[in-house]
């Protein structure tokens, strides 16, 4: 043990010792059970003020009408906002819905979640498998894939906007190669493709890191045994790697699913939800309805956010149930 570490240890010990007497005093004063509450109190206050209170307020906004922001000035309308959002002749055709843009946003979000999460997991897994092998410059490549995660979502979106705009980098390259340019962010299908691509590019590194940790936790003797038995690479992957990686993949699935449903910032800057409503997701609808459009329909926006929260809760419970059943099975 070096002198420095001994000194640090001594200082820490002294600090802890100095806390002992006041803590014992408080414990004697309020009792053992209440001390626990005292420690929890700061966190409870912060959670209460910034999480639980907004949830409760959101419920009140969802059940009141008008464009007033103060609850005292908002008339109670019951479930009217929910009825307005859900008024639809055919849920598969947003044009038949009273709030057609809400339903377009729901459809877009569903499509986005399936595509983005599915592709994200596939690409993350493939990348993690490659980066787990003994390749040249492995550390460098791990850094490269993780780097976009460190960037602000607005920076990510602006970079890609410069690449994708009509006179951007991509079209300049295409024209240089003798190909015709494409109006990437004005065409509905291409815009949707690019929001999926950009969000995968921006977040994949995080999931690669988690999967990489999962892969490295698999004991090497299992692979050695499989090799001795002459198992093919595909069989090793399918029978050993994948099953042992499943708990990690479930974590990745839950995290990426929740994040995909909440996607907003990159898309807001990159496409603004357009063209038309082609890339308008549910959070964008809530923002537009509650804060951007005039008059501000806070009630409708709050009701939409409650519906979104309900869907997220169902998804999370489903994932937890799956995880639990696998752990027990």
């Amino acid at each position: 043990m070096t002198f420095a570490s001994t000194a640090v240890r001594t200082v820490y010990q002294a600090a802890f010792n100095s806390l002992e007497r006041p803590l014992l005093f408080v414990q004697n004063l309020v009792g053992m059970r209440r001390v626990a509450w005292m420690f929890l109190l700061p966190n409870l206050v912060i959670f209460g003020a910034f999480t639980f209170l907004p949830i409760i307020l959101n419920y009140f906004y969802a059940t009141t009408g008008s464009d007033a922001i103060l609850l005292s000035q908002r008339p109670y309308v019951g479930a009217e906002n929910f009825r307005t959002l859900l008024a639809c002749k055919d849920y598969l055709d947003p044009n038949t819905c009273q709030q057609d843009i809400f339903w377009r946003a729901i459809h877009n979000t569903a499509k986005f979640v399936v595509l983005q999460v599915g592709l994200m997991i596939v690409f993350s897994l493939v990348t993690a498998l490659i980066l787990n092998r003994d390749i040249v410059l492995r550390g460098f490549f791990r850094g490269v894939f993780f780097y976009p995660v460190l960037l602000s979502p607005v920076v990510v979106a602006l970079i890609w906007k410069w690449v994708l705009q009509r006179y951007g980098l991509l079209n300049a390259g295409l024209e240089e190669a003798g190909l015709s340019s494409v109006n990437w962010l004005v065409d509905a299908n291409w815009s949707f493709f690019w929001i999926v691509f950009v969000t995968i590019w921006a977040h994949m590194g995080f999931y690669v890191l988690i999967l990489l940790a999962g892969l490295q936790a698999i004991p090497s003797d299992v692979y050695e045994a499989a090799e001795m038995d002459g198992a093919s690479k595909w069989r090793v992957f399918y029978r050993i790697t994948l099953p042992l990686l499943t708990p990690t993949m479930v974590v990745v699935l839950v995290l990426s699913l929740i994040r995909a449903v909440q996607a907003f910032d990159e898309i807001f800057v990159l496409t603004g939800g357009g063209p038309g409503t082609a890339t308008t997701l549910i959070l964008h609808y809530i923002y537009e309805t509650g804060f951007a459009a005039r008059p501000r329909l806070f009630g409708l926006a709050a009701a939409a956010s409650i519906l979104m929260a309900a869907v997220l809760m169902v998804l999370t419970l489903l994932q937890l149930a799956v995880t639990r059943s696998r752990a027990e099975g």
Binding site: T279, E288, A292
Partner: peptide, 10 residues
């Protein structure tokens, strides 16, 4: 691009 390049009422 001017009208179709954005969404909502931006």
């Amino acid at each position: 691009e001017v009208w179709a390049g954005s969404g909502g009422s931006a």
